[in-house]
Design a protein around this nucleic acid. Structure first.
Lengths: 146, 146
DNA sequence: GACATATAGTTGTTTATGCAACTATTCAAA
DNA sequence: TTTGAATAGTTGCATAAACAACTATATGTC
C-alpha cells in the first residue's frame, strides 16, 4: 500500500487542521469587526438553513457534522439571538423544524460576502488546479473516516 | 486574480475543516480504545514536548497555534494527569519550562503509532502526489492568514 | 536607579464539543 | 393492542477555545 510509511514530521498539521482553524478565526474576526454578534458555529448552522430553511435538528446534525447535543445548544443560542425558531412538526411529534427569522434572512448576503472574502485571502497565490486537488483529497479523507 | 469567483457551494467544507475534525475524532477514539486517558489537545502538547522537552508555555503556544490561556489550562490538566511538570526557569523568573514525566515518555511510541495508523486510514486510496499538493496548499493557506 | 514598556503566565466569562444518560414520540411485530 | 425497538431531542458533566483583564518579572532608556 502507498501510505504506509508516512513521515512522522508530517503527522501534526494534518491532524490538527491548522489551516481550517486559521480560516475560521479569520472569518470570526471579520464577523466581529462587522459588528455581527455571531459565532462561526452559529453561522455554519445558518448557512444550511439559508440553503434549505426548516431543517430538523437531526438534519442539521448531518449537515454540520455535529452531534445532537451540540445542535440543541446551538439552536438554543440562535433562538436567544432571535435568529431561528423551533417549530414543532405537524406530522411527527418528535421533530422540531428550525426556521429562520426575518432578522436571520437579512444576515445571509453580508456574511456570505465575508466568507468569500476570507477564502479569497486564504487562497492567494494558490493555483485553481491545486485548490481542486486539495478539496478532492479532503473529501476522500472525510469519506474514508465517516 | 484567480480566486475571485469562488463558487459558494465550495465555501463550507474549507471553513469548517470537516476532514481534520474527522481525523481528530478517529484518533481520539483510538486513544480511548487503547485505554489512554488523553485528549487530542493534550496529545498535541505532548507531541511537541516529545520532540523537544522543556519548552516554555509561550513556545508551546507558538508550536500548537493556541493562545496562552489555552496552554495554561492544558498544562494544568496534564499536570493533574502526572504527565508534565512546570519547572521555573533559572534564568528568567517569568518562564515555566514544561517537562515530561517518565509516565509521559512511555506514551510516545504507542500514541505515535495510533496517529500514523489514523492517517493511513484517512488517506487510503489517495495518491502520494496529491497528498503532497494538499499539504502544500494547506501550508500556504496557513501562511497567508497568520 | 526609576519608570515605562514588553513579555510570561493566570483567571474569569461565554461558547462549543463529546459522551452518557435521559424523556418523549413513533413504528413495527407479535 | 400492547410491547419493544428505533428515532428526535434534552440535560449533565468534563474539556477546550477565544477574549479581556489581571499579576509578576524583565528590559531598556532617561
Amino acid at each position: 500500500m502507498s501510505n504506509q510509511h508516512f513521515k512522522k514530521g508530517e503527522l501534526y498539521s494534518f491532524i490538527t487542521g491548522k489551516a481550517s482553524t486559521a480560516i475560521a478565526r479569520r472569518l470570526q474576526k471579520k464577523l466581529n469587526a462587522a459588528g455581527m454578534n455571531l459565532t462561526i458555529e452559529q453561522w455554519s448552522v445558518l448557512y444550511h438553513l439559508w440553503k434549505d430553511d426548516g431543517k430538523s435538528q437531526q438534519e442539521l446534525c448531518n449537515a454540520t457534522f455535529r452531534d445532537k447535543p451540540s445542535i440543541t445548544r446551538l439552536v438554543d443560542n440562535l433562538e436567544k439571538l432571535n435568529l431561528v425558531k423551533r417549530v414543532p412538526s405537524e406530522n411527527d411529534g418528535r421533530i422540531n423544524k428550525i426556521t429562520l427569522t426575518k432578522q436571520a434572512q437579512k444576515l445571509q448576503e453580508q456574511t456570505m460576502l465575508l466568507a468569500e472574502e476570507t477564502l479569497n485571502e486564504s487562497l492567494v497565490s494558490v493555483p485553481p488546479e491545486k485548490i481542486e486537488i486539495c478539496k478532492e483529497v479532503l473529501q476522500v479523507v472525510y469519506d474514508n473516516l465517516k
